[in-house]
Design a protein around this nucleic acid. Structure first.
Lengths: 160, 160
DNA sequence: GTCCCTATACTCGGATAGCAAGTGTCCGAGTATAGGCGG
DNA sequence: CCGCCTATACTCGGACACTTGCTATCCGAGTATAGGGAC
């Protein structure tokens, strides 16, 4: 899985705690997480295309959450960054080789593919059950208070 | 996910229906599935290292299942081929950047990583609940009888 | 003092290189077999 | 006829190229701002 997924989720959580109406440029998001600015921008564009974040051009522009944090699931973010393609793709090798039959003889989906699909659905459901809001709840409990204060101070600094 | 996972599972199912004591060389497995022989061999080696299949050298050698089909789960096969590394790996970017604290201040695991871990565990459990034996049951129900006959005939042919 | 206009600079967005991992291939080490030879 | 030995050829296993996609970067298009000028 792409490393950008981790970056994207962290960025979304930071955008979620932004004051209403405020935005944060990609460069600031990259600075806060200490990641390459230009490359992070690429993933933020993917989030924007998916509607998870909104982009504002020009001075005092940047990114902000496109909808309430409770309406953004981890699955949304993962699919946006990864492209939404299934990790396991059945190439129907059962229809090839010396013991194969004409295509029309194969009715249902390959049993192996079905098993892999079930596992993937379990994964997707677990991700779909976690919203950004849930993550924020966890963070409020786990993040050291000192780190939260430094974050607020940093935001005041860069948003002068 | 690597394409080799699909190949490996199909090969395991074919090895599972092999008569007791018989083996099938990598070249025959590749021929049956119409995949590159040398590359399939690479994945079969991974399965052998994991103990899922046993290798027999020399003439009339090849591969056979290393333990009963009921004792091999899809998770075993996936981990053997993919290396068993977690698809999502937390790089602890929360500990970096301008609002970070000394390392010792961060107690538990990152909340985002925990959420991703939960989803991965759901995926792994779904795979662990499916054994090769279950897959064989599905196949016995879904595979066209004509294909099964051709498979047996092909095996008689190559094992002369 | 207020409004408008323009120049500015800051933002995103897509097009462009570099690299690592997956993909594909090959040849050498080891071994069970099959045939030949001797008893 | 039986047993042993040797040469054979077939197998796996790891070491070697190539390609795709992820990683990383840059520059151009668009826009809200801020300052200056006119009224």
């Amino acid at each position: 899985m792409s490393e950008g997924v981790e970056w994207a989720i962290h960025c979304c959580t930071l955008l979620a705690v932004l004051p209403e109406g405020e935005t944060l440029p990609a460069a600031r998001l990259a600075e806060f997480h200490a990641v390459p600015p230009a490359y992070l921008a690429k993933h933020l564009q993917a989030l924007a295309r998916a509607g998870i974040v909104e982009s504002v051009s020009g001075p005092r522009g940047g990114y902000r959450l496109g909808r309430p944090a409770a309406a953004v699931t981890l699955l949304d973010v993962v699919d946006a960054v990864e492209g939404g393609e299934a990790p396991f793709r059945c190439t129907e090798i059962r229809q090839r080789g010396p013991a194969s039959l004409p295509r029309r003889e194969y009715r249902g989906r390959c049993g192996i593919a079905r098993a892999m699909d079930r596992a993937e659905q379990a994964w997707r459901q677990a991700l779909a059950e976690q919203t950004l809001d849930d993550i924020l709840g966890d963070l409020a409990r786990d993040v050291p208070p000192a780190a939260a204060l430094k974050t607020v101070a940093w935001f005041q600094e860069v948003r002068r």
